[in-house]
Every structure is written in structure tokens, then in C-alpha cells.
């Protein structure tokens, strides 16, 4: 690992709510996500037409989002992604609610919330992200916007 790469690491500290440690590509939603009526568990895609990620697949991605919205079916729909093999790899979210917390638990993927900085602003789609929910850490490896992170 070169010094330059190491310098581009950003560490967000928070609280792990579903244990586990994984590394993968980030998919960042700046808008909250609906479960029922918002995602299709058969394909692991966002189906809400007004959503910025309409048609985008989250399977195998580190899903970074502000929080859950809409129907109480949220947790059940994300649980279905686990049962149908289309789940995200991990979850990182800002706003802790019953929908998002229960959803993360029944999706059974490493999840971190209550971070010391806004993950939606600090992580970009395509970033390589390590989610260490055992220690409540999210480590962001570049690339990310230099404008937001003057060295």
C-alpha cells in the first residue's frame, strides 16, 4: 500500500448494529429509500419512479443512504432480498429508525449507523468501502471528491 493511497483513506466512526466485516463498492443514495413500493426484491433494484436511483441495482453493494421511508413493509422487503439472494453487501445509514434498524437486522448484513460525519456526503458511489460493524467503523478508500477533502 503506497503512502498516497493511505492518505486517501477516510475513517467514519459510528455504531455497528448488525455485526460483521465486509469490503465492497459503495452505492450512495442521497434520498431516503422506500421498501414496499420502493424496491423489487426479485431483482434487488430501486423501483420508485421519482427516486434518483430508479432502476439501479443494489445487490452486492455497500448501500449508503440517509434512512428508510414509507411503509412498514420496509424490513420485510429487505428481508426478502436476503431470502432471494439480492441483498446489499452492507448498510450504512444516517437516520436510525425502527424500519431501518429492523430492516438491517433481518437482512443480516453488517450495518453501521450514528456516524461522526455524514456518510451520504462523504462517500461517493463507486468508492471502495470497508464496513467493520464489529468496531463501528466505515473506512472509505478513494476515489472521492478532493473538493470535499482538502489534504
Amino acid at each position: 500500500m503506497t503512502g498516497a493511497t493511505r492518505a486517501q483513506q477516510l475513517v467514519l466512526r459510528g455504531r455497528g448494529i448488525v455485526p460483521g466485516r465486509v469490503e465492497g463498492e459503495a452505492l450512495v443514495s442521497h434520498e431516503t429509500i422506500s421498501g414496499w413500493g420502493g424496491i423489487d426484491p426479485a431483482t434487488g433494484t430501486i423501483i420508485e419512479r421519482r427516486h434518483e436511483l430508479y432502476g439501479v441495482c443494489f445487490t452486492g453493494k455497500v448501500l449508503v443512504f440517509p434512512g428508510a421511508k414509507g411503509s412498514s413493509g420496509w424490513s420485510g422487503f429487505f428481508q426478502s432480498t436476503r431470502l432471494m439472494g439480492t441483498a446489499p453487501l452492507a448498510m450504512v445509514f444516517t437516520n436510525l429508525t425502527t424500519k431501518a434498524a429492523l430492516g438491517a437486522i433481518v437482512t443480516r448484513v453488517p450495518t453501521v449507523t450514528e456516524l461522526d460525519d455524514d456518510p451520504v456526503a462523504r462517500i461517493a458511489t463507486g468508492d471502495l468501502v470497508e464496513v467493520d460493524a464489529d468496531n463501528g467503523l466505515v473506512v472509505v478508500h478513494g476515489p472521492w471528491s478532493q473538493a470535499c477533502h482538502p489534504q
Partner: peptide, 8 residues
């Protein structure tokens, strides 16, 4: 009540 889900 909170907005509960299927498992809760």
C-alpha cells in the same frame, strides 16, 4: 407505537 415490521 413505532412503525413496526414483520419480525418485530
Amino acid at each position: 407505537t413505532n412503525c413496526e415490521g414483520g419480525a418485530s
